[in-house]
């Protein structure tokens, strides 16, 4: 009953945030844009048929075409909306949940209820994700239906993006909550969780950058310490690849034909492209268990810290 009450409260609190409606609005706009595009065996129509591009690249009836269409959905739409703008908006919108519950005068009543502090903390944490669950479900469901009805590709695997999105959010939300519990400030929670997002991907970015220099010794101290460092933080970048794989999309490189990237407009030579493809293939094959498992371990440690702090606090 207490958990249910906190979920309902969280929904009401979400509904009260402008960001909630902004996100909903963005979902609506993206849906409209998606509806305006048509993929068929003979070609692609844009803006409700105003323009027509002859191409069999996105033929929903061919396996490769369907994978490309799903690639467009995952890499270009979901990854940009849910994994980028949406994520920032969600972090901003939810950053205030803990500080407002912990504000003087409000926390008193709640702590006086017959609920233990660890339970209260966990309930609040989980119910804070209702916001994201609602947004992700709305977005993915709308996308799934448009891809099915309008584009003719039915990919139930797309729906797995909903839990993946909530998972990605939780990797960062735990940092937001830790910051909120320590500082009781919404601004600090926003800044630190956004900072953590960048921080989490730093070791891997560094590794990728180092890989560009083949003359560098792969056993050097920098290299191996980066590799170890990269295993610790949540694997935020894996989420997009897991989404793509489970939805049945291909590599992001496969969306466009190779000639478009190595040709005059693409500005890459074949070697570079091969290198990037190799790297993407590797990321694409990432083990869900170890990626999600190690990320959740990190999240659990951060949460324990926050909870420990929350349970010992005087208000």
């Amino acid at each position: 009953m207490q958990f249910g009450a906190m979920i309902i409260d969280s929904l009401r609190e979400s509904r009260d945030r402008k960001t909630f409606w902004v996100l909903g609005g963005i979902t609506g706009i993206i849906a409209l844009v998606m509806l305006s595009v048509g993929f068929g065996p003979e070609g692609t129509s844009i803006f409700f048929g105003t323009w027509h591009v002859e191409s069999s690249l996105f033929n929903p009836q061919s396996e490769a075409g369907a994978a490309r269409i799903l690639g467009v959905v995952v890499y270009m739409i979901m990854d940009n909306f849910l994994g980028w703008i949406g994520l920032i908006l969600m972090l901003i919108a939810t950053a205030g949940f803990f500080p407002s519950m912990m504000s003087k005068g409000e926390i008193d009543v709640v702590l006086a209820k017959p609920i233990s502090r660890p339970k209260l903390f966990l309930y609040k944490y989980v119910s804070g994700m209702v916001f994201v669950l609602v947004q992700a479900t709305a977005f993915v469901l709308v996308t799934f239906l448009i891809v099915g009805f309008r584009w003719g590709v039915w990919a139930p695997g797309l729906l797995l993006s909903i839990p993946l999105m909530v998972l990605l959010f939780s990797y960062l939300y735990c940092v937001s909550v830790l910051a909120a519990v320590i500082t009781r400030s919404t601004v600090a929670a926003v800044l630190l969780s956004l900072g953590a997002w960048i921080g989490f991907s730093l070791p891997r970015t560094a590794l990728d950058t180092l890989a560009v220099f083949p003359e560098l010794d792969k056993n050097s101290a920098i290299y191996s310490s980066m590799r170890v460092l990269a295993t610790i933080p949540p694997k935020t970048t894996d989420i997009a690849y897991l989404s793509a794989r489970w939805a049945g999309a291909g590599l992001s490189l496969d969306i466009a034909p190779t000639s478009a990237m190595t040709g005059p407009g693409g500005g890459m030579n074949q070697d570079q492209l091969d290198q990037i493809r190799e790297r993407e293939k590797k990321q694409f094959k990432v083990s869900a268990l170890s990626s999600i498992g190690s990320s959740l371990l990190f999240e659990a440690v951060v949460l324990m810290l926050a909870m420990w702090r929350f349970c010992r606090m005087d208000f």
Partner: peptide, 8 residues
Amino acid sequence: AHRFPPYL
């Protein structure tokens, strides 16, 4: 000096 959630 209690404070209640204003959205309720």
